[in-house]
């Protein structure tokens, strides 16, 4: 429930940052589908936690180390809204200049996603497809049992 509220707040933050497409995705996926799937998972799991077989020290150390490295990495990032940041000087100006004449789509985000970065988007769709296949393999075990029953009968 908290993650759902968090996603909705993040969607609002993205709207404030003028990233409407990202806000849209965050609201639909984060606040909508993820919450429902989380509830489905809660329905599947048991109410009591298993007794852990190892101590909490090693996982805590890993989490703190990773968090520390990530925090250290943010100090190397360009300042917020810096016009000379690599993001704004590499290919982004070309996309913005060329899109009206070459692709002629009002929404540049769509042009970048679907055309300039079409290969990446295909990879993303493949990831979603693979995730779906994985869930089917792990949770859809009922059909296989029926098939094996049939084979036994024959």
């Amino acid at each position: 429930m908290l993650s759902g509220i968090y996603s909705l707040l993040m969607a609002g933050a993205f709207v404030v940052l003028d990233a409407v497409d990202v806000a849209f995705t965050e609201a639909a996926v984060g606040a909508g589908i993820s919450t429902v799937l989380m509830l489905g998972t809660l329905h599947l799991t048991r109410s009591r936690e298993k007794i852990p077989t190892h101590g909490a020290f090693l996982p805590l150390a890993v989490v703190l180390l990773t968090g520390g490295i990530l925090l250290y990495a943010t100090t190397g990032m360009p300042a917020f809204g810096d016009p000379d940041a690599p993001v704004h000087t590499h290919v982004a100006p070309r996309y913005i200049e060329e899109t009206p004449e070459k692709i002629d789509v009002p929404n540049i985000v769509t042009a970048v996603l679907a055309s300039y970065r079409g290969y990446d988007t295909m990879g993303e769709v493949t990831v979603i497809f693979t995730a779906g296949v994985g869930v089917m393999l792990m949770l859809g075990g009922r059909k296989r049992r029926r098939d094996s029953d049939k084979e036994d009968g024959v």
């Binding site: 497409d21 995705t25 789509v105 009002p106 985000v109 679907a114």
Partner: peptide, 20 residues
């Protein structure tokens, strides 16, 4: 999605939300 915010990902999720 060509003209405003949106596209395949968001549309697919909204469509699925209706069925869910």
């Amino acid at each position: 999605g060509d003209f405003g915010p949106g596209g395949g990902f968001q549309a697919g999720v909204i469509f699925a939300a209706g069925f869910i």
